[in-house]
């Protein structure tokens, strides 16, 4: 599925929730249930330092598609990571580079992607795109 379609699917899912509690509960569930990254990749090198919660990201090219795995020590952050991974992982690097992140706003999580929020997610998206740029260069 294309990134855009996946994002629309996520927006659809979130539109079923009436209030923030349900949205957060869903995210916490996502955060709890997903094994996100292989322990061996939870290294200092892979840490994206947000101010408060740690975020690890690892990228691998598989058949011209970029596969991301990631984790965080904070569960809400982890839930959002799960959503980002669903949207961006297993996609062609160029598509990742071109993708926008407006759907985060649409599902009511805008505040988590504000640059003033000290949770490392802004840096994480930047990092996903940087990986995509790097691998795209490699593919060229």
């Amino acid at each position: 599925m294309a990134i855009k379609e996946i994002q629309e699917e996520i927006v659809d899912e979130f539109s079923m929730f009436d209030d923030w509690m349900q949205r957060y509960e869903y995210m916490i569930e996502l955060g709890k249930s997903l094994p996100l990254i292989d322990e061996q990749y939870k290294t200092e090198d892979n840490i994206i330092k947000g101010c408060q919660s740690k975020v690890w990201v690892h990228a691998e090219l598989d058949n011209e598609k970029l596969v991301f795995t990631a984790d965080s020590d904070a569960i809400i952050t982890k839930g959002i990571i799960a959503i980002l991974i669903r949207a961006f992982s297993n996609q062609k690097p160029q598509d990742i580079i071109d993708a926008d992140t407006a759907f985060i706003d649409e599902i009511g999580l805008k505040e988590h992607l504000s640059p003033t929020r000290a949770n490392g997610l802004v840096s994480m998206i930047k990092q996903l795109k940087l990986y995509a740029v790097a691998y795209q260069t490699q593919l060229n």
Partner: peptide, 13 residues
């Protein structure tokens, strides 16, 4: 078992 950032986020809400 809970990260302080998560508690702060819920309290903010």
């Amino acid at each position: 078992g809970v990260h302080p950032y998560d508690i702060g986020t819920i309290l903010d809400k």
